[in-house]
Every structure is written in C-alpha cells, then in structure tokens.
C-alpha cells in the first residue's frame, strides 16, 4: 500500500499529466459520446424488441424511391464526414482559412441531409404515416420511424450549429485546432449512429 516515491512518480497515471495524452475537452467529448451512444442504443434496442413482439410489422419501403432516396441521404452524410476529416487535417497543419472552408462544406452536407430528411418525412406524412397510425398496420411503425430518425436529425441539426460556432471561433483565432478536432469527433459519432439507423430502419423495411 505504501507506494515508494519514485515508482509512483514515473507512470503517466501518477498525476501531474493527462494519462491519455489528450486535452480535457477531448476526453470530455469521448465521455459524452459514450453516454449518447447508450441513449441511441436504448432507442434501437427498444425498436428491435417491439418489432419482434409485433409479428405483422410492415415492410413498406419500395426500392425506388424510398431506399434510393435514403441511400442518397447516407451518401451526403458520409461525404460530410470526409470533409470534416479534411477540416481537422487543415486545422492541425495551421491552415486556418482552408479549415474554415472545409467546416463550411461539412455544415452544408449536414444541412442538405436535414433538408432531404424533411422532404422524405413530408412524403410519408402525405401517405398517411403518423406517430400513432399508418396505412400498413402496427401503429408503432410510425412511432419508431419518427422517434428514432427525429432524434438523429436533431443531433445533426445541433451539429450544424455547433460547427458554425467552431468555424467562427477558429476563423477568428479564438479556438484551437483541438477544438476543431473535438467537434469532428461529435460529427463522426453522429454519422456512425446513422450507420445503425439506416440498415435497421430503412433496409430492413424494404418491400419484398
């Protein structure tokens, strides 16, 4: 129990330094991502559980247009992750203006995604899908669809605002490259969530 002095002072865990060799903000973002990932996990597990419990769960999405459209959304979101990678790389190399441009491109991708998503929702609402009913049977279909994709879309929208703040701050020299990197973590996380939402909600609902 009585650690000797020298032994304890030599490890990265012995105090005085950040053991993960990253700033506190980055660690904080990772922790946020863990808890938010759990929130999404619960939503997706609940959806799966209820889908199993309702044997007549509908599969209403035709390949043309629904699946192709949502694939387009996926591509847009993935592309925005790519531009975010470029933004972080530029920020780390000290290329302020380039980084800001890439962040703006990312925001554009995010905004486009939200726009496409809203268009899609309008379509479904026209077809009669509501949180509490739909033309194909189990009312939970609409609830799960709107609830889970809505939660994700909110995250994208918040991300766009967050990136806006970061681009302003970084452009004016108030934020560090690490701040850009931290916002990048958030952005990639939100994309990653979509990579679960897309197969579970869309691909598994293709019309036979």
């Amino acid at each position: 129990m009585n650690e000797t002095k020298t032994e304890a002072l030599s490890s990265p865990w012995s105090g005085g330094v950040s053991p993960f060799a990253m700033g506190s903000k980055k660690l904080g973002m990772w922790l946020f991502i863990i808890s938010d990932a759990l929130t999404f996990t619960v939503l997706l597990v609940s959806y799966s559980y209820l889908r199993f419990a309702n044997p007549d769960w509908p599969r209403p999405f035709p390949f043309f247009n629904a699946i192709t459209f949502s694939t387009l959304m996926t591509v847009v979101l993935l592309a925005s992750s790519l531009t975010m990678v470029m933004a972080v790389a530029a920020a780390n190399r000290g290329l302020r203006d380039t980084a800001v441009k890439w962040i703006l491109a990312t925001m554009l991708g995010g905004a486009l995604f939200v726009g496409l998503h809203l268009t899609e929702r309008m379509h479904l609402i026209e077809e009669g899908v509501r949180p509490f009913s739909n033309p194909w049977g189990p009312p939970l279909f609409g609830a799960a669809f709107f609830g889970i994709t809505g939660m994700h879309m909110t995250h994208v929208a918040i991300g766009v605002i967050y990136l806006g703040i970061v681009s302003l701050g970084f452009g004016r020299g108030k934020f560090s490259p690490e701040d850009v990197e931290v916002s990048g973590l958030y952005w990639h996380f939100v994309d990653l969530v979509w990579m679960f939402v897309f197969p579970l909600i869309y691909l598994m609902s293709v019309k036979h």
């Binding site: 759990l38 619960v42 939503l43 009312p139």
Partner: peptide, 25 residues
C-alpha cells in the same frame, strides 16, 4: 451515472412520446 442516466433519458423520451404524440411504445 454516465452509463445509467443516458439509458433513463432514452426511456423518458419514449414515455414522453407515448404521452404527448400518442405513440404506443
């Protein structure tokens, strides 16, 4: 807390939808 409250948050969101958006989770 980090691992537990994220779960309760999701549960509360679903319950709130049941109460306000007429869903049936």
């Amino acid at each position: 807390g980090l691992l537990a409250f994220g779960v309760l948050l999701a549960a509360c969101i679903l319950l709130l939808l049941d109460r306000t958006a007429m869903t049936s989770f």
